[in-house]
Amino acid sequence: MMKKGNNINKKYGLCFAILLVLLFVSVISSISVGSTNISFKEVWNALCGNKDNIVVYRIIWDVRMPRICAAIFLGGALTVSGYLLQIFFSNPIAGPFVLGISSGAKLTVALAMICFISNGVQMSSGMLVLSAFIGSMVSMGFVLLVSGKVKNMSMLVVCGVMIGYICSAICDFIVAFAEDSNIVNLHNWSLGSFAGMLWSHVSCMAVVITLAIICVFLLSKPMHAYQLGEEYAKNLGVNIKRFRLAIILLSGILSACVTAFAGPISFVGIAVPHLIRVMFKTSKPMVLVPGCFLGGACFCLICDMIARTVFAPIELSISSVTAIFGAPIVIIMLVKRKANHTRG
């Protein structure tokens, strides 16, 4: 029996190692690939702080590195946020995008940006996150209200998509009628993009996301119990009210952070947790939470690399790329589950 346990731990270790290697490779190639291709040697030199080639040094440290860090943090955050929602609704097709939470955050961020910009005030990262958090909580409130009325998960998802459309529509109106030329930026952002990240953004998101992920990890044990359903969890001694509140807040903060800095990004929150579950073949949150974070980081990094290189110099929105890779995964997952259900 002990030997078996060791084997399982080895398997998890191997999966984590694969994810880390993948992340490392994606980081290195993300640094070197782009509108200017940089050789690995130059990348190495610049990373070591060698300023001989000042142009390369600037490109790497001022443009690509903040963008890469953002993709890592935000990708991880988005995936964990999706995973939390899946635990909360005990349904694998829950995610911040399909439930309209990202769109809610997008709307409030757009509103806040316009208010501040038209008054000539630049928004700080903290204010961005805060406004996104308010929006995501309002959307989440709606979703919870609906989930109280309809027990059927597919109905809930349809409602979430509708909320998402409403928010996006309002957002489009605002952007279209906004006068200031600064709003041009807003348009790009509202489609979803990692472009134009500053180190100040990165440090803000790093702090918020790291804290939130630590909290999520600390909730692994009650999450494990909650997977059997609310009644069993309560019987096992989980404080359900507090637990549910914590899950909602944390997933809200994580997805708000993503929306505040990179706009709404689709499908990552559903597709990546699914891939990670398949890869690790377990349901243990203690393994899946870090797995999801790493997986999401790799996924977003690779998608971002594709978004900015395939049709360079034109950049695709990140959502277009994540949708192309993510949506088929979700469809395959749904079809497989359906097949399982009819068999059982």
């Binding site: 005990s90 694998p92 600390l218 692994s220 044990k221 494990h224 119990a225 997977q227 059997l228 359903g229 009644e231 069993y232 019987n235 096992l236 001694g237 989980v238 579950r277 690790f280 073949k281 377990t282 349901s283 243990k284 203690m286």
Partner: peptide, 30 residues
Amino acid sequence: IVLTGRVQGEYFTCKDIVEKGRYPYTGSFG
């Protein structure tokens, strides 16, 4: 407790399910 309703979930082994019963006895990381 043992309830009537069916429990769903992917990638639960039987042992995983039974292990949940130790929840009140393990530390904060389980």
